[in-house]
Amino acid sequence: MIGCGAIAELGHLPGAQVADFVDMTVLVDPDIQRAREMCKKFGVAEARSSISEIGGLADMAIVAVPHKVHADVTIDLLERGLHVFIEKPLAVTADEGRRMLAAANAAGRVLGIAMARRFSAGNAYAKKVVESGIFGRPRSFRFEEGGVYSWPSRVPFLLEKDAGSGVLIGSGSHMFDLVLWIFGPVESVRCFTDSRTKQEVDALVELTMASGANGVIELSRSRQLSNSTSIVFDTAVLHVPTFGPGLCIESQDGTFSFIGEPRINDRKVIGDADMAKMMAAQLDDFAEAVALKREPMASAMSGIHCIELIEKCYENQQDMIFPWERPIAVVSQ
């Protein structure tokens, strides 16, 4: 485990404890005390303060470090012969992502991305429904993810400039990944943000898919959004949470509906909101991908496509209009 911050403590390390195919052998953090604390908490034998000290202790690395160093850390690990499973986003820029993929290919190692939402039953179900055509073609969709930001980051990297710190690349990575995974390529993008600094807190993205479907992704770190997905098909409307249990299928005219749980015959898909199980599922998928020499659920290439889409958003961004923000008139005596 490279980086012992909040996502390691709350996600990857509890996930590794219940994963079938992964044994956590060494924790690395520049703050060696923190690494030792996490070793004690999660029963891991070794703590190190630098990647250069992990030789022979691991054959796969989970990377959870600030976004701006994703590329350098990953390439370093790949060149040391480790397979790398990286916390989203793959990188801050698509160019970095391509360098990372090239490094993985050169080293003959697997590079995968943590996209836990693909393992959530509702999203997997939505993908199955789209692919099956059971309700006809998807005409439109809306993905929402947002809440008042309270993630207990240990390092304030999201406050740094040019560090991949905006909401588009943060939780947006999850939503863009789901959209590309479920609906395929994007034809065009319109993006509205509350800032041009790439430190946007709120964003709204309108997408036209190559399939002809239109969609909206709304993201926020300041407001509680519904954290759900709605897909309008020819004959029905599907609602699922972006994470956790539950689903609702409504008739087009809203006169009748079905409320229940998505069922998928896939052991990797997790039906509840248990983060450890979700993280374990994706770790096991990655370990299996390494063993079987196949692509992991979220490949490096899918991560590059995701970042390319985010870059398109930044290129095309327009200002959100907030009519309640008026200039403060100051006229002194």
Binding site: Y149, S150, P152, S153, L159, Q199, S222
Partner: peptide, 18 residues
């Protein structure tokens, strides 16, 4: 600031040094 809160993110977005 004392942590990465929604308010701190908004201040950074607006161009403040934290």
């Amino acid at each position: 600031a004392h942590r990465t809160s929604a308010g701190a993110l908004r201040a950074a977005r607006d161009g403040a040094e934290l």
